[in-house]
């Protein structure tokens, strides 16, 4: 025991005694948690509980990336934020709370979007990644990077009272092995609604999986998808550990407005009403059905980069993928609110 405790001061040993006394953790496991680092992508309904419990558990370094500010519509499920926080950036508000909760750990907040240009360096810097974002393009970007770098990706998602959690990439297939390309049909919680407690449950489960992965527990959900319906109290698991990686897939470059130049052709693929309610400066409005149905001969002329936009990125990705099969390069998706 005394040898195992050596990396921990008496102060830290007593702080974590209630978890370190568990046979699956021990002082050795606690020392591992203290030396580990976790990147949490998204400081919303999943990211908040995940971050809180990982900070409580003593994870040595926690990075939080989120570009959003706190809104009134977030408070029913992102319950750490208060009414007086409305308008403040989520990542720094959450980071501030974590530092107060545990001054022994290093908390880094990134008030920015996860984009193709910054994602690789961030993933590189941390031991494992929690996908607590609500965007397919982010999930694919993280999955591709985690697969390439051999890091575990703990992904979760919730709509209504139903959700899933799964562990991808390191010693497990990637998200693309389940869904090779950005889906045509999908709902997101901003479109379909979401209840608070189920998001809290899945965010907490992401923290628990992170702890198991750091401790190299065979009980981690590697290559497994756990689905939960808290309204009907149902659970089910799908084992995808043998799923083959797709031979061909098409990564999409995610960029923000700062990367757009005058040479780019910016195409807003939302419908006319959406486009008029929050216009994108300099963008041509061609709704996705028109791109899919009518072909895109006018867009093929010249060799300008085509940058597609819609709010969630899903329709933009569909447009980008349908274009790419014809022009092979110079395609990107703009990620902004």
């Amino acid at each position: 025991m005394a040898e195992d405790l050596s990396p921990l001061s008496q102060n830290l040993a007593s702080r974590y005694v209630r978890q370190a006394s568990l046979p699956d953790i021990g002082d050795c496991g606690q020392a591992k948690l203290i030396k580990s680092s976790v990147l949490i992508v998204g400081a919303g309904g999943l990211g908040v509980p995940s971050a809180l419990y990982l900070a409580g558990a003593g994870i040595g370094k926690i990075g939080i990336i989120d570009h959003d500010c706190i809104e009134l519509t977030n408070l029913h499920r992102q319950v750490i934020y208060t009414e007086s926080d409305i308008g403040k950036p989520k990542s720094s508000a959450l980071a501030k709370h974590l530092r107060k909760l545990n001054s022994n750990i290093d908390v880094v907040s990134y008030e920015e979007r996860l984009l193709s240009k910054n994602a690789a360096a961030l993933v590189e810097e941390y031991d494992l990644v929690i996908d607590a974002a609500d965007n397919f393009l982010v999930t694919y970007l993280l999955s591709d990077l985690c697969l390439a770098k051999g890091k575990s990706l703990i992904s979760a998602s919730v709509i209504g009272s139903k959700g899933y959690i799964g562990v991808f990439c390191h010693q497990a297939p990637s998200y693309r092995a389940l869904f090779p390309n950005v889906p045509e049909q999908a709902q997101s919680c901003s479109e379909a609604g979401v209840l608070g407690p189920i998001v809290g449950v899945l965010g907490n489960m992401q923290a628990q999986e992170a702890i198991k992965l750091i401790l190299d527990s065979p009980m981690a959900l590697k290559g497994k998808l756990l689905t939960i319906d808290l309204w009907q109290n149902r659970q089910s698991q799908i084992n995808f550990s043998e799923a083959p990686e797709p031979e061909h897939y098409q990564p999409i470059e995610l960029i923000d407005e700062s990367a757009i130049t005058d040479d780019d052709l910016l195409i807003d693929v939302r419908n006319e009403i959406e486009s008029q309610s929050s216009p994108v400066k300099g963008a041509l409005n061609i709704p996705l059905p028109q791109i899919s149905e009518n072909g895109h001969n006018s867009l093929l002329k010249g060799n300008r980069r085509r940058v597609f936009f819609c709010v969630s990125g899903r329709r933009a990705a569909q447009a980008a993928l349908s274009m790419r099969s014809e022009i092979n390069d110079r395609i990107a998706v703009l990620y902004r609110s």
């Binding site: 999943l46 919680c189 965010g203």
Partner: peptide, 8 residues
Amino acid sequence: FFPPVTGG
């Protein structure tokens, strides 16, 4: 059967 979902 399980569909792709995103949200949180």
